[in-house]
Design a protein around this nucleic acid. Sequence first.
DNA 1: CACCTCGGTACACACGTGTGCAACCAAACG
DNA 2: CGTTTGGTTGCACACGTGTGTACCGAGGTG
Lengths: 342, 342
Amino acid sequence: MKASIKDIARVAGVSHSTVSRALSDSPVVNPETRARIKRLAREMGYSPDAGARGLVMGRTLTIGVVVTTISDPFIAEVVQGVESTAFKNGYTVILASSGAEPEREVAAVEMLRSKRVDGVIVTASRVGALYKEHLTRIEVPVVLLNNHGESGGPYTFSVRVDDRHGGYLATRHLVERGHRRIAYVSVGEAGHSSDRERQAGYCQALTEAGLPCDPALVFAGNGRWDGGERVLPLLCAPPEPPTAVFCFNDMTAVGLLRSARAAGLSVPEDLAVVGFDDIPIASYVVPSLTTIAQPKFELGEKAMQMVWILIEAQRETATPQVHDTILQGRLVVRESSVGRSE
Amino acid sequence: MKASIKDIARVAGVSHSTVSRALSDSPVVNPETRARIKRLAREMGYSPDAGARGLVMGRTLTIGVVVTTISDPFIAEVVQGVESTAFKNGYTVILASSGAEPEREVAAVEMLRSKRVDGVIVTASRVGALYKEHLTRIEVPVVLLNNHGESGGPYTFSVRVDDRHGGYLATRHLVERGHRRIAYVSVGEAGHSSDRERQAGYCQALTEAGLPCDPALVFAGNGRWDGGERVLPLLCAPPEPPTAVFCFNDMTAVGLLRSARAAGLSVPEDLAVVGFDDIPIASYVVPSLTTIAQPKFELGEKAMQMVWILIEAQRETATPQVHDTILQGRLVVRESSVGRSE
DNA sequence: CACCTCGGTACACACGTGTGCAACCAAACG
DNA sequence: CGTTTGGTTGCACACGTGTGTACCGAGGTG
């Protein structure tokens, strides 16, 4: 059986309140008895009950992280940033994966509510309406990651990467390499805000270079590698095919690289390719992939810091001194856009 | 403020015990009042306090998962299996990453103990001595993943992949392809049990084919890609270099592929390469990597099922009907061992 | 009418922890 | 010696939930 402060109190011959105070270094207890109690606690293998403590303290030092799936390397890296920062501040992370199923999404949020988490971080490209309603009901600070939706309540904010600027950087890079016909492979899903923004940056760079934003050069992928693979034939179909392509994300680009190789096209000579995200695979494919690196770890770090500030503000019922944060992506030039020999 | 069963009891004009029983569908409460209370609970946005419930029930329906880092794609997939199975059984997962630092390891275990988790799953290649001591003190079922250490207490078991058989499969595949001089790249760390086992399987396949187990054909890597990269020159040094190589893991093999390409060696014609793990990258490198696929998701699934059985057994103070489980890896043949044209 | 049965509900306690308040004791002071 | 002061400690309650036991009223039976 596990030892409680009452058990310690019994063998120490004091009341449980004295033990409680001694263990929390209260200055009112006699230094000798405090030492004696602490020694006893160590000997008896005492470990404070987080549940009971949370009950009386009104805080659990726990934050919930909602993800679609943890096996997405991008998300995993973000969670790593959250976990690391949480640990430094004495917080614990509870994981809740939704698997992108609405049913599990609400179950996950309900679970976090039951666990009385002090805050919630949500990493999902889009937050369903039903889901969102449950999120606000949780009455606790919420930070949305890479979500472009409006930051609802007074304690709901968001951290995201600058998609538009990222798209701009990627496309400008291709323009600077001398390309005039540059295609874009979208996620093929209406209303996907990241997709919209990246495409807007793409158009901005084209316009700035005096090039037209030709809708015929925008192709629909699906955000996965098979989407990139399927798009290649369409890309090559026109009489004057594009010489470069910017993809919504790395997975799409990787699929495109694969099918390009199968079709005998050489990258970047026949077709230059740029992705977005900088997932681990990007540096291992051949040719290695030029991409926009999202600061994944910092994304999670920043989100956790923000949640922490919000929690503190809520405890003092103060209006929090935070605002939505936008981090900048970074262009990482690799072989798929400049060749190996250069 | 959050609504408790007492609040519901007040507005319903009954005692809190009646509310408690009504919400847990106890047959002793009047069906009408039960319906009324349930409706009230929904209206008031009631959510049961998991901490308080855990306090009185003696179980938290929570299991802790200790990992080195969640951004390792292999581990992430395993955790996904754990999480998915846990959710099905009504359990919640608390994540604790140790970052391979001993200090954080014990802090992580202590944290899980405080949270009164019902069971623990540890995914780490080796469990330190100090760390292990803390693990046993937690007095709760523990399942070790891919750990070859002795399964200590009565409620400590392990789930792992058959490293020896995997090594055997990989090497036999190369033998069948006609190779006579086959090298092994180890993890270069004394006492690493997975490494030892995989090498043993490698030797077994060689012996079975009437080939010698030449120690000069065993090279030391470090389990990471740079280790594989550095090993290539040594591999090519002998007057009669090996025509095939089996690597401890995929990362090592990927590094080896990269440096082989840089050195102008063609794979698999000049050198056939086989890895171990089947991480996502394996299918994207060029040439794609032949490897032994570990059943990652099933590994996590099995571990969670085992923890569940152990928990149930412990509750009834029965001797659990489980035993250490060994899952089989699967040979996945790709381009790095048979070429693209065949 | 007295007794028993039984469905439904309330009371009281338990779980482990933190904390305001009172109580106690010793020492110092008037 | 009486009183105050200050340092320690215990008592009692609170947090939210589950459950054994007692209670109460209605209906049935002898």
